[in-house]
Computed example of a mutant assay.
Amino acid sequence: MWRSGGVGWDGDRPVLRWWGGRTSPLGYGRPLAFRAVGGRACAGARGNPCPVAAAVPGRSTGGLCPACTRLDRAHSVAADTFTDDPRPYRVYLAWFGPGTVKAGITGEHRGSARLLEQGAVAFCWLGRGPLMAARRTEEVLRRALGVPDRVPYERKRLLRPGLPDAGARAAELGELHARALAVGGWSETLEALPFVPYDHGDAFGLAGLPPLDGTVTGLVDGGVVTGRLIAAAGPDLHLSDPAGRHLVLDGRLLGGWGLERGGDDAWSVPIGAVPGEGSGGSEQEGLF
């Protein structure tokens, strides 16, 4: 049985990850059909198998049992338990939709991978330097610009249909970048970077995305997902099901499930209603 490791990105292409390191490419416009089998198992932490082979609830987006979750965060930059990384870090602005921009930091060695993973439609770099300087700068700029450090996944999904064009996205980022440079003090410890906008609209396949009709709330043993992949952003797979509905499957819900190729069986995993505008929703679980 092949167990899923969730959805990831190989360069600017979405892939389905498997335990053991293999990946399967995901193509827009192509059918995607599978059945969840064998129960959902904990993937383990930091390259180590789960010591008790724990089961994981179908609705969990973490994909780990409580013990492995604690181990995973025991040496984590995001949890402030790893502060002596000598490598350079970058501060960025990530754009998810009109009026929805966040500030964050990522390791320079990761390039733009973190921005793809969190579903940033567009982004720009603000500065680079040591980890703790980047952390302090992120906080200073976040408060000065009035932007959060996290955006709920539900809000990201609601914003993707009907986005303005790449020029408008870049313009909003450019205005915030200019305001960030005008904030005093932070460039003394961090190298300020010039404004260069980057856009993931094409990589995500977002052009012409229809309004969202629902989201998968969790997989079940024997449950079938079947449809056509129309877009992907961060961990989210946007699907058109056989009834023509636009549904989102959060790829984090796949982690730990055994997946078998689906046939002609009907969709049989639970679907939740689209939350209303302003719903808090679940936030991303890491910043880096």
Score class of each variant (00 low, 15 high):
residue 278 G to C: 04
residue 182 A to F: 03
residue 174 G to K: 08
residue 130 P to T: 13
residue 83 T to M: 14
residue 141 L to S: 08
residue 10 D to E: 11
residue 184 G to D: 14
residue 173 L to S: 12
residue 228 R to E: 15
residue 252 R to K: 12
residue 32 L to H: 05
residue 31 P to S: 01
residue 123 F to G: 10
residue 28 Y to K: 02
residue 206 L to P: 15
residue 181 L to K: 14
residue 222 G to P: 00
residue 140 V to C: 01
residue 59 R to I: 03
residue 52 V to Q: 08
residue 205 G to I: 09
residue 281 G to E: 08
residue 242 P to A: 00
residue 156 K to V: 15
residue 14 P to M: 05
residue 111 G to A: 04
residue 36 A to E: 10
residue 78 A to H: 15
residue 242 P to F: 02
residue 242 P to W: 02
residue 235 P to I: 00
residue 167 G to K: 05
residue 5 G to M: 00
residue 239 L to D: 01
residue 144 A to Q: 00
residue 63 G to P: 12
residue 97 G to F: 05
residue 103 A to G: 10
residue 210 P to D: 02
residue 69 T to R: 13
residue 219 L to E: 00
residue 50 C to G: 14
residue 259 L to V: 08
residue 260 E to V: 04
residue 95 W to L: 02
residue 208 G to K: 10
residue 98 P to Q: 07
residue 111 G to C: 09
residue 251 G to V: 06
residue 25 P to I: 01
residue 84 D to V: 09
residue 31 P to F: 04
residue 269 V to K: 15
residue 207 A to L: 11
residue 23 T to H: 04
residue 142 R to F: 04
residue 157 R to N: 13
residue 137 T to P: 03
residue 109 H to S: 13
residue 70 R to M: 03
residue 50 C to S: 13
residue 116 L to P: 04
residue 79 A to C: 11
residue 266 A to N: 00
residue 39 G to H: 04
residue 133 A to Q: 10
residue 1 M to Q: 07
residue 108 E to M: 09
residue 127 G to S: 13
residue 254 L to H: 00
residue 150 R to K: 10
residue 16 L to Y: 09
residue 145 L to F: 13
residue 127 G to M: 09
residue 205 G to T: 04
residue 86 P to S: 09
residue 104 G to Y: 07
residue 108 E to F: 08
residue 126 L to T: 13
residue 278 G to Q: 10
residue 5 G to H: 02
residue 242 P to L: 05
residue 278 G to A: 07
residue 111 G to H: 12
residue 72 D to A: 12
residue 45 A to M: 05
residue 6 G to W: 05
residue 123 F to A: 15
residue 72 D to I: 02
residue 257 W to F: 13
residue 216 V to G: 03
residue 22 R to Q: 10
residue 127 G to F: 07
residue 233 A to F: 15
residue 90 R to M: 06
residue 82 F to M: 08
residue 129 G to L: 08
residue 122 A to S: 15
residue 6 G to Q: 07
residue 266 A to M: 01
residue 11 G to A: 06
residue 26 L to F: 02
residue 13 R to V: 14
residue 270 P to A: 00
residue 187 S to C: 14
residue 23 T to Q: 12
residue 151 V to K: 03
residue 27 G to N: 11
residue 48 N to R: 12
residue 63 G to D: 14
residue 195 F to I: 11
residue 92 Y to F: 11
residue 247 L to R: 00
residue 202 D to G: 14
residue 227 G to Q: 00
residue 180 A to E: 09
residue 256 G to N: 10
residue 134 A to Q: 10
residue 265 D to Y: 03
residue 191 E to C: 10
residue 275 P to S: 09
residue 142 R to I: 09
residue 104 G to I: 01
residue 250 D to P: 06
residue 183 V to R: 10
residue 101 V to L: 04
residue 274 V to T: 02
residue 73 R to H: 12
residue 241 D to P: 05
residue 239 L to A: 03
residue 163 L to C: 03
residue 171 A to H: 13
residue 89 Y to L: 02
residue 220 V to T: 14
residue 39 G to E: 03
residue 34 F to L: 06
residue 218 G to W: 01
residue 197 P to N: 04
residue 74 A to V: 04
residue 271 I to W: 11
residue 95 W to I: 07
residue 32 L to I: 12
residue 133 A to S: 15
residue 106 T to Y: 06
residue 216 V to P: 01
